[in-house]
Structures are given as structure tokens and as C-alpha cells.
């Protein structure tokens, strides 16, 4: 008698870091994961497609037209569809391609001789979107890679059949760094190129840290190893609203009398603010062509 819940992990365009995070969680918690069985995963186990699975886990983002078909097919096959990782939830790093013209990307990587209309590769999607625009996702676990405790929580909830609700507090709630009463930015620094005071809030030091708008759940793991938050857990509000509010609050924090403020030091502001979420942004102004 097989009472195990069947799992299918199907990767789209991604780096397979989410599978590694899943295996890592699996390794430390055998009792819980004995209730599950992976029956399909091209990276880990078998790649023979079953007809039905209980839980379909999608990692990565949609990039080719084939990916959409695959996604829709697995959406029908699985009872519960879980989006694992920032790429599946918000578009992730591949979403940054929206800043570029596709032809220029092809020119850079392959050759200018190849045009979009005549090449023998799978057809690229013009505009990268998050998979939530194609199918309904039942549970979304963000993170790049997803934190171990959230994955364990996900499988506990899958076993009980309950919905999983992500925490609605910001990373600053778990941040161990010291802050002062008056939050003032006196100069803008580039992270890792200029010295910063240890154990002091990154924003007060002048390094743009996305902690205030990013959802917690990761135990501030980047900040504990002295790296500013990059926003992989997704934002607390509507994505564009959060980004613009962050811009607004940072500019209000800047000390107007300081002469060291040089905004041009911030290279690639959009890439910084939308590092994981550009694909699901509604503010896609980007001119193509």
C-alpha cells in the first residue's frame, strides 16, 4: 500500500539552486519527507512523465514558448501547484532581460547574423513574465534559494492540507544590526568597494539595502553575513508601489546639507530595485527595438 504523496519537480529556465535547497531541507528532516516520494524530476530522479501527481513543484521562469506548454500541461496534471523560488514567484533574475532588446541579447550571445525570425532554437518569448500570468499558483515560496525553514514548513502544510501564509513583516524586524534614532544618509557608498562600519544599519551607512520593503521569512540571512538585502523574498506590497516607496523614503532620509551625496555612484538603479521582480512589474516602460 502506497500512502506516500507523489511529487513532481519540473524545472523551467533556472539554475537548479531551488532543487539543491529542497534536497538540503530533505536531508535534515527525514521523518517529514518520508511521507513524500519524488516520481518526476529530470534533475534528481526519473524523467518519465506520470499522468497525475499530488504536488507539482515548478522552479524557474518561463522563457520559451515550449515552457508555457509544459507549464500548462503540468498544471492540469498536478492537484496542487507550488511555485518554488523567486524565479517561479516573481520572474527572478531572468526577468532582467526585459531591460534589453531581444535582438541585442542574441547578438551578444550568438551572432548578429541570427535574427529572431529564422533560427533553429526554441522560440523566445518577447517579454519575460512571471508564471502567475499563465496559471494559478496554489502556494508560492519565494527566496533565492528558498530558505530551509520555509521549505520544511511548506511540506508540513502539504501533509496537513492547509494553505501556507507567508509572514507579512519586513526584513528589518529580524535584522541584527544597530540603528540610531534619526535615520540619516550622509553619503552614498557602493557596497564592497568602500569600507563600512560593522554592525551598523546599511542604509545609514549609505548602502542601498532593500530590507525595509522585503518580506521576512529568511531570518535576515544575507545581513547576518554582512551583505545588504537584495529583495529575493519579494516585496510586502504591490511590487511597483514598494519600489517607488523605497525610492521616496531613501530620498527623504538623505541629509540635504551633506556634500558627499552622489547619485551617479549607484550603477543600474533599476537592476538593484527590481533584481528579482522586474518580470512581474507593471511599470514596463522599456522601449524595444
Amino acid at each position: 500500500m502506497n500512502t506516500k504523496l507523489t511529487l513532481a519537480i519540473f524545472p523551467l529556465i533556472g539554475c537548479s539552486g531551488c532543487e539543491n535547497a529542497l534536497l538540503d531541507a530533505w536531508r535534515v528532516n527525514d521523518d517529514l519527507f518520508n511521507n513524500f516520494e519524488i516520481i518526476y524530476s529530470p534533475l534528481l530522479a526519473d524523467f518519465e512523465e506520470p499522468d497525475h501527481v499530488d504536488v507539482g513543484i515548478v522552479t524557474g521562469n518561463v522563457r520559451f514558448h515550449e515552457d508555457i506548454n509544459k507549464l500548462l500541461r503540468w498544471h492540469k496534471k498536478s492537484k496542487v501547484l507550488v511555485a518554488l523560488g523567486s524565479c517561479a514567484c516573481y520572474g527572478g533574475i531572468p526577468g532582467l532581460l526585459n531591460l534589453q532588446n531581444i535582438q541585442s541579447v542574441i547578438n551578444d550571445i550568438y551572432s548578429p547574423k541570427i535574427s529572431l525570425d529564422n533560427y533553429d532554437m526554441p522560440k523566445l518569448i518577447e517579454n519575460v513574465k512571471s508564471i502567475a500570468e499563465f496559471v494559478n499558483i496554489d502556494i508560492a515560496i519565494p527566496g533565492c534559494p528558498p530558505p530551509k525553514n520555509l521549505i520544511i514548513k511548506l511540506f508540513e502544510h502539504l501533509l496537513k492540507g492547509e494553505p501556507l501564509i507567508l509572514p507579512d513583516k519586513s526584513v528589518c524586524n529580524e535584522c541584527p544590526l544597530n540603528t540610531s534614532e534619526d535615520k540619516v544618509i550622509r553619503n552614498i557608498k557602493r557596497f564592497s568597494l568602500e569600507p563600512i562600519t560593522p554592525n551598523k544599519c546599511f542604509l545609514e551607512e549609505g548602502v542601498l539595502c532593500l530590507g525595509p520593503i522585503t518580506r521576512t521569512g529568511c531570518d535576515a540571512r544575507c545581513i547576518k553575513v554582512n551583505t545588504p538585502c537584495r529583495g529575493c523574498m519579494g516585496y510586502l506590497y504591490n511590487i511597483d508601489e514598494a519600489v517607488v516607496k523605497f525610492l521616496s523614503s531613501v530620498s527623504s532620509m538623505i541629509d540635504e546639507k551633506s556634500r558627499n551625496i552622489d547619485i551617479d555612484k549607484i550603477k543600474d538603479l533599476t537592476g538593484l530595485l527590481y533584481r528579482f521582480t522586474l518580470a512581474s512589474s507593471k511599470l514596463n516602460f522599456i522601449k524595444r527595438g
Partner: peptide
């Protein structure tokens, strides 16, 4: 003024 400075940079990268 600072908001406009930030936003000008943002708008340029977003295509305006």
C-alpha cells in the same frame, strides 16, 4: 529635489 534626482535616473533606465 532629491526625489526628482532619483526618479530621473529611474525613468531613464525604464525608458522615459
Amino acid at each position: 529635489k532629491m526625489k526628482v534626482n532619483f526618479l530621473k535616473k529611474f525613468l531613464q533606465e525604464m525608458g522615459i
